[in-house]
Design a protein around this nucleic acid. Structure first.
Lengths: 117, 117
DNA sequence: GGCATATTCAACCATCCGGTTGACGATTGG
DNA sequence: CCAATCGTCAACCGGATGGTTGAATATGCC
């Protein structure tokens, strides 16, 4: 019943979790290493990682006694696509848009709404 | 102290608020009209609108006794830009129209941060 | 003025959230 | 085997969140 976007955006709403995602951009990390730069208990970080995993933003794989955390950009991209729907409403240069339509889109993608209200 | 992204993402985490934003895509609306399709008290919707306004996602202008709500896509775009940082190392699944929009916005809006190639 | 409309305020409630601590299970290594 | 390391679980706490209701505040209309 809960939209996946709910959990993704809720996960992104916390600065600690966004920082974790940024760290994971560089490399996969163990939970302890993720926690290291934060002034927070390991259990706290573990919770945050659980929320990120629940939102599909990361995956966790246990190898030995170390649990590796890996960024999973797909969920992010889905949320990004949702948001871009609102960007289309920008007061963009419609003349240029028409030029673009003639040059690129003529009959190729009728699904793309110009949103011309 | 709180990052603006906190409030934006938190605002987006609620399906009612996302639905409101979608409604406002079509047109500016009065609070009562926003509330109409929801099975929720008017005061509840008013709170949601306050949160959206607090996040900068909408603005509200009172004309007479009616308060008009207007979508404000800038805050959304800022959050979107943050998210695109994570997709940068993968071929983003944007169609030509969205690429075009980004190119246009870069030229027209000095506030728009660069987004790599 | 007086009433209907539009919206918010205030109080309240249940629940969730971010954080802690302490105990615990699992794994590694001497 | 014993101890250290890695990570989670459970209980707890204060504060935020999402929702309600009822009163209050503006404003518009006759």
């Amino acid at each position: 019943m809960t939209d996946p976007l709910d959990t993704v955006f809720a996960a992104l709403a916390d600065p600690t979790r966004r920082a974790i995602l940024t760290m994971l951009l560089e490399d996969d990390m163990a939970v302890t290493d993720v926690a290291e730069p934060f002034e927070m208990s390991l259990a706290g970080i573990s919770k945050h990682l659980g929320i990120l995993a629940g939102a599909g933003l990361i995956t966790q794989e246990k190898r030995g006694r170390v649990k590796w955390c890996k960024l999973e950009p797909d969920a992010l991209r889905r949320a990004s696509v949702w948001m871009q729907g609102f960007g289309q409403f920008e007061p963009v240069n419609l003349d240029a848009f028409e030029r673009f339509l003639e040059a690129e889109l003529q009959g190729s993608d009728p699904d793309t709404p110009p949103q011309g209200d």
